[in-house]
Nucleic acid binder design. Structure first.
Lengths: 197, 197
DNA sequence: TGCATTCTTGCGGTCACTGCAATCTTTCAC
DNA sequence: GTGAAAGATTGCAGTGACCGCAAGAATGCA
């Protein structure tokens, strides 16, 4: 695990990354719709058919790190002490992943821009997030303080909404704000039941 | 406006409904993916090309009433007194549309079942809901007590999450629960900041 | 009845995505 | 080092959603 797990795997990962990078560049330059899978394949010197053994969907190119990020949220969540209130555990977990955002700012911005113009990507993104919601709700439901399945679902859904909001604001506003801060603010607002209203 | 607005329009609406009904029946019987647009068109005695002048997308067949429902939410929201707290206004508006659910139970159930199996439909549904969130956030931002745009967004996002949860629970659990009740429960939980946790 | 408007339809085409079977590469056992 | 097993790449042929266009049919109105 320390040293590479075989040349085969390494090549596969390398190539995957090459495809992704090439594609994102093309998307940025020519637009998402105007860039065909065939073009991407050609630019990577692979057969069009091969593309689909790396990515199931053209949309997925823009959303590669989603699975990773979910895993990071789940890990962070699992690492919280069991006696911590669920809401607080959620907040801390999301704050933790928000801290990673800043180092990926450019990539996120590029992907966000594509989502803004390509409905299918936006839709797929939301669907993946629904998967997150589900996974997170499952973990939440295991907590002692979250008896109900519906409550778990609602908690997860709210957390995700906060996350979307924070990410969105960070990416569209200037650079003066920081993701963890925005995330905290969202959790704080919702956690107080929007009580200033 | 009282009497039909011309035979042409009536026919168009009629036909639209025919296509929708036929399609939903086919989906239920054969499955969403297994039913091609061509099949639907044939069953309706129209040319395949004509289908697309009634529905932009095969997916949209399952989500026909989304635009209407959004309008109903917005209307209900606009009808709330201006001095009412935003959160309460939201709750009342969503409760109001939840009351309509029960009369459409069969249709909703059928559509929900399709969404459960067809990812593209689910994704499209979420994307439409994002549109709702946006529209609702705009209205919210006009309220005196919602100064911030981000707060408006967050409020709308939370409300939508509550709605999804309520709808989901109602459709998957037995018939012993009622949508407005579930909706109220969700709003109550979030409105209290999940304070029992 | 005749004309303008609007629908319907067929045609040809694009593009994402798939299953299959052949070919080539890497791995690994000997 | 060789050869066989396992895995990856590729081409081919096909499906199905969806689109632009232009011709033909239906409709509404004068």
């Amino acid at each position: 695990m320390a040293t590479p797990p075989g040349l085969r795997e390494r090549k596969k990962l390398q190539r995957r990354k090459l495809i992704e990078d090439t594609a994102l560049e093309l998307f940025a330059r020519e637009g998402f719709d105007a860039t065909t899978v065939e073009t991407i394949a050609a630019a990577c010197d692979i057969a069009p058919r091969t593309f689909f053994s790396y990515f199931a969907t053209k949309d997925d190119l823009v959303l590669t790190d989603y699975a990773d990020r979910l895993q990071r949220i789940l890990d962070a969540f699992a690492a919280r002490p069991a006696d911590e209130p669920a809401w607080e555990a959620l907040q801390r977990s999301f704050e933790a992943i928000a801290a990673d955002y800043e180092s990926e700012a450019d990539s996120l911005r590029a992907r966000f821009a594509i989502m803004a113009t390509a409905p299918s990507v936006r839709a797929r993104s939301l669907e993946l997030q629904l998967g997150w919601e589900f996974a997170l709700a499952e973990r939440l439901a295991e907590r002692a303080d979250v008896a109900d399945d519906t409550v778990a679902r609602l908690l997860a859904g709210t957390a995700l909404a906060i996350m979307r909001g924070a990410l969105r604001q960070w990416l569209t506003s200037g650079t003066d704000s920081h993701p963890p801060e925005l995330m905290r603010r969202g959790f704080s607002l919702a956690g107080n039941g929007f009580d200033h209203l």
